[in-house]
Design a protein around this nucleic acid. Structure first.
Lengths: 339, 339
DNA sequence: TCCCCTTAGGTAAGCGCTTTCCTGGCAGGC
DNA sequence: GCCTGCCAGGAAAGCGCTTACCTAAGGGGA
């Protein structure tokens, strides 16, 4: 069985395609009830489903919105995506989720792809890349997309001068550092994310500033870069501890890594927080369920997603809008004063 | 600036649209190198990006594949989605992820939507609904989609007689129950998922069978239904314990609920596993990071996703294929012999 | 040298819709 | 009774591509 087309429905109902189209789309043009019923009946009998590609082509309207994330299965993005989806759904929009898996090339390819599909907007999440060439190419593509009528909103990125949600990464880093220094710790290790991501750089900057504010400095051997996930945290904690056995506190630049570090600490028989304090970042759902519950810097991820989608969906025009989202310190059981 | 079309490129390069199309799509038809270069130059100068809707319409080919999940931000689906995406990407396919949020109506709407977009396939994950009317409507839409050339693959669902990946939910339930009975527990409480989902029913059936095999029975007051998430588990555990203070073991039908139960147990001062054993289901990433680490029934989620996508992507025809995926018992620290 | 075959490239007919513009019929006003 | 105005519905022109088919030119064999 071939798929039924508008023309098939029209033929069956004995009307023109124009009429069927009008009825299906609830166009304002009035149509006699008898006709409407006949058409609707034909639609049902033929199990007609309009071809969205043809509709989009004919209407030249843009409806779906594309979302490019590093990895939906990462709780950080999962939470943001949830907010994104909620608002999109409230507005009757379809969301296309694309995982770049932190590969800049793939990210670039996805922008083209969403452009090709003439999505109404693309929202780009996740840290940007520090490499200027990549940034420039991305920006070019983004501008092009905007120039042809698409909207773009970015979350926590610097590269694009358009609508943006910017989480206070630097201030958050400062909050984490400040909390640790206040508790009396000075032998602090830092588990950073990948070095080429701006999120890492920003959070690290905050940490450095906190150190400075407390008359301390953070040296390079106190910092270990790793993947933004549990295993990264686990491995980095081991390296840090080997190099620096006297550590009394560790700041991890996200909660996944903190959880990994916690596992390593337990393995090494280091009691948290009595022997060593640990602080994370993001306040992912998992952080209350580990033992001890993680102190962390909270970023309202779901809300960030929701606000980004609102930005992406707002009507044409308007100046680029940049919304800052505050980070908050959440002290739980994994941090304690220096003994 | 309006978006450049094929015709614009053709005009600029001084060739016909056919030639441009052939060059862009690397069609087998030979084209002189000089022309090719001129066209490619024009493409670059105009920042031409083909309109995917028009292409799809003209070619009548299907490329993207739609995925309907309950909620990507749920680790269970996040993990499956990861597998789905991996295989799709390996095959150069775009994935459209749709969150039904466990709403049957939304699920139905998404099937229509993916049909309308003429996706190559849709893969449906997550438990099905026990309500026969919903099931019938869904099945009708799915068949229609198939009849018009789409493929469908389902994960862990009964309703559709097509390609399917079926995790051994019932056997998994049996494994969990059997493990508990073997340890000597008989005062067992069960935290079940939503009653209208088949996953719940299947896992529960396994549990009942295990009870029976050990000369026991599971009465209704030993079972508490809840949402498949942490809070559901937390609340259900409280109810179960209030009703049944002598419980020595709890089986939760997924790990998220088990984690919630664990939190409640801790609050009530009940030591796990010395005073009460706890077993989960799915082996989500979090289960190794809670204290004590969760005993559970492992389902290879990423692999399930990957296999479902392979099924969805295979060439036309072929008989419906049903692949079973084995569940395995994973004993960690949250279960212990009855004292 | 002529003819036919090959080949590079163009012409134009769709793909399945939407929408502008047009037509024919009817009611109401004079 | 005739003209005007209005209204329901249809005809057809695209939307931006792909591709089957056609044309013109060049090359080789007889």
């Amino acid at each position: 069985m071939l798929v039924a087309t508008l023309a098939d429905v029209a033929r069956r109902a004995g009307v023109s395609t124009a009429t069927v189209s009008r009825i299906i789309n609830n166009s304002p043009k009035p149509v006699a009830d008898a006709l409407r019923e006949r058409v609707l009946a034909a639609v049902a009998e033929l199990d007609y489903v309009p071809n969205a590609n043809a509709q989009q082509l004919a209407r030249a309207d843009r409806s779906a919105v594309g979302v490019i994330v590093h990895d939906v299965s990462d709780p950080y993005f999962a939470e943001i995506t949830r907010g994104l989806q909620r608002v999109a759904t409230e507005n009757g929009r379809l969301v296309i989720i694309c995982n770049s898996y932190r590969d800049p090339e793939r990210e670039l390819a996805y922008v083209d792809l969403l452009h090709a599909h003439r999505t109404a907007a693309v929202v780009l999440t996740g840290s940007g890349y520090i490499d200027p060439a990549t940034t420039a190419r991305l920006d070019h593509k983004l501008r092009l997309f905007e120039a042809t009528g698409g909207r773009v909103a970015v979350i926590g990125r610097h590269e694009h001068a358009g609508d943006a949600i910017v989480p206070e990464n630097e201030h958050g880093g400062w909050l984490a550092g400040d909390a640790l220094y206040r508790l009396g710790h000075t032998a602090i290790g830092v588990i950073a994310g990948p070095a080429h991501l701006t999120t890492t750089a920003d959070r690290l900057t905050g940490l450095h500033r906190a150190a400075h504010d407390h008359g301390q400095t953070l040296t390079t051997d106190q910092i270990e870069y790793a993947g933004f996930d549990r295993n990264g945290g686990y491995a980095a904690a081991a390296l840090l501890l080997d190099r620096n056995p006297g550590l009394t506190a560790i700041a991890a630049l996200n909660d996944s890594m903190a959880v990994g570090a916690l596992a390593l600490l337990r393995e090494r028989g280091l009691e948290v927080p009595s022997q060593i304090s640990l602080i994370g970042f993001d306040d992912m759902p998992i952080s209350v369920d580990v033992t001890p519950p993680l102190s962390t810097v909270r970023l309202p991820l779901e809300e960030i997603g929701a606000r980004a989608m609102s930005l992406a969906l707002r009507e044409e025009g308007g100046d680029p809008q940049v919304e800052h989202v505050a980070a908050h310190l959440v002290l739980r059981g994994s941090t304690a004063p220096l003994q």
